[in-house]
Computed example of a mutant assay.
Amino acid sequence: MAPMSTPSSELTVAVIGCGRPLRTEGSTGFGMAHRHMAGYQQSGRCRLAAVADLSRENAEAFVKEHQPDAALFSDYREMMEQVRPDIVSVCLWPHLHAEVVCGAAPFKPRAIFCEKPMDIHWDGSLRMHETCREHGVILAINHQRRFNLPLAKAKALLDEGAIGALRRMEGAWHNLADSGTHALDMMFFFNRDEPAEWVLGQIDIRGSRKVFGALNAGHGISSFRFKNGVRAVYHFGPDSGDFGFLVRLSGESGEIEILPQSPWLRLRRTGSAAWETVDTGESIHDDKAIYRAIADLIQALDSGGRPLLDSENALRTTEIIFATHESSRRRARVDLPLPPGPCALLSMVESGELKLEN
């Protein structure tokens, strides 16, 4: 565990993978490094000490915007050796996550805040978690939607007993391993991060595409059971909008839905045909969630505890993704824990068992 800090002390930050801000020239993604940096600045506790990026142009633009005197590196290991930052943000494409997180952890930063999904392989995801634990480094994965107000309010309503005891959850979104990792993480959040005990899944390779370099199956379904008996089903693919919700919680005496558009959150009690809209004043996409996640990470450093986005929680979500692929490969239910290994989806593509469309 990282040592505790004084709540007023300054924390140095390093960023690996600067990128460009969303919808600007040269942007290849959501500009997550810039959004992380906004959260660090919002905290009032953090100072950008250094960045590492293979693109000198991107690195220079990043520090010009956020901290002109920050050091620039092309090699993240050299940066870690020279700067020894307190917190490291890893904002790279998924296939680089395990390599870089495991490469940075031995330099013993106090925390690493890595973008989701954890990695493109299950064994890589496990290695990230285990390596950081070995070196006493907190690893947090940016499933930031836990901190969006509609989800926080839904969790509060559930915990208050607004729909009675939770019995079932159903989710639907575009894919399994990119945006889907948020939907699955929501389910674990609502069920108090209870571990799952088995997964039964099927995938369809048709319509598959790469998201930030990581292959996502085009269509599929994943059914799983939590150890406390709650059941969950997640649908993914081009027709996910047919369901009309992102996540539905079914309890003994009502339902709660997280919606993919405004009003974002609604509640229906048993015996009523009408939905009650719950206005939190915020969407499920608001960047304030990232700011809150970073504040929670800093609080964990101050207290010596674990952040809500700790990699132990993220592993449970990640295991569902890879167990779904493995279940499709085996054509059978997969009992958890899932043994370490490569991604079954990629293995089936590489072996020719599954053929991608041209």
Rank of each mutant, 00 (worst) to 15 (best):
M4R: 15
T6F: 03
S8A: 14
L11E: 08
L11D: 04
R20G: 13
E25N: 12
S27F: 11
M32K: 13
A33V: 02
M37H: 06
G39Q: 10
Y40G: 08
R47A: 07
S55H: 03
A59K: 02
K64W: 10
H66S: 04
Y76M: 07
E78N: 06
M79S: 13
R84K: 13
V90R: 08
V90P: 09
C91R: 04
P94D: 01
E99W: 02
R110A: 06
A111K: 02
A111G: 08
K116Q: 10
G124L: 01
M128K: 01
H129Y: 09
G136E: 10
V137S: 03
I138H: 03
N148Y: 12
L157A: 02
L157K: 09
A172R: 10
H174L: 14
N175H: 01
L176V: 00
D178H: 14
D178M: 12
L184E: 03
D185I: 06
R192W: 09
R192Q: 07
D193W: 15
I205V: 05
R206G: 13
S208M: 05
G213R: 09
A214D: 08
F226H: 10
K227M: 15
H235I: 04
H235K: 04
F236W: 11
F236C: 12
D239V: 09
L246G: 15
G251A: 10
G254V: 11
G254A: 09
E255Y: 03
L259M: 05
S262N: 11
L265R: 15
R269C: 02
T270H: 14
T270D: 15
S272H: 07
E276L: 03
D279A: 14
S283E: 09
A293N: 04
Q299A: 13
D310I: 03
E319T: 07
A332C: 10
P339Y: 01
P340V: 00
L346N: 14
